[in-house]
């Protein structure tokens, strides 16, 4: 046990420098750049809009749920799964720094949630608009 502890302390010392890096702004920028790169391939793309993102987020799109059904009308707050009632931590990345840090996780949930809400995948434009909107919250 004490050997494990010593190892842990060593690891902590070595990595403490890495843990405090300001990763967030950097990663949001990377997500935005990635969405923009994909969006540019469709004709007529100009830029992302927080207003469109907000409208998209709060409207239903043919199915029962909107994004706000589970993430609330104010994504600075904790949400609740519309069917299971399980609490969902705030989606706004400036309020909850765990959000939009892991590309695999972000893609997994866009795929599932867009499928539930729109019965199709979200376009890069829609994803970029939503993230632009989310980044206006909690500033």
């Amino acid at each position: 046990m004490s050997r494990i502890n010593t190892l842990l302390v060593l690891l902590l010392v070595v990595m403490s420098g890495l843990a405090v890096q300001p990763a967030c702004a950097e990663t949001f920028g990377q997500f935005m750049a990635e969405f923009a790169r994909s969006a540019k391939s469709s004709p007529g793309f100009q830029s992302f809009s927080a207003a469109n993102g907000e409208q998209f987020f709060k409207s239903t799109h043919g199915n029962e749920w909107s994004c706000a059904s589970c993430h609330t009308e104010d994504p600075a707050n904790s949400g609740k799964h519309a069917k299971t009632s399980k609490v969902i931590k705030p989606l706004a990345p400036l309020v909850n720094p765990e959000r939009f840090t892991d590309p695999t996780k972000v893609e997994k949930w866009f795929k599932r949630n867009c499928n539930d809400v729109l019965a199709r995948a979200c376009t890069p434009q829609e994803k970029g608009d939503v993230l632009t909107y989310l980044l206006t919250i909690g500033k």
Binding site: Q21, Q30, E34
Partner: peptide
């Protein structure tokens, strides 16, 4: 997504560290 490699490395390091701490707990 083609993310900056250094960043991925750092993230993995932190994840491994956290994983280690959790398994001890």
């Amino acid at each position: 997504m083609p993310f900056d490699n250094r960043n991925t490395l750092r993230m993995s390091a932190v994840i491994i560290l956290l994983g280690g701490m959790m398994s001890v707990a």
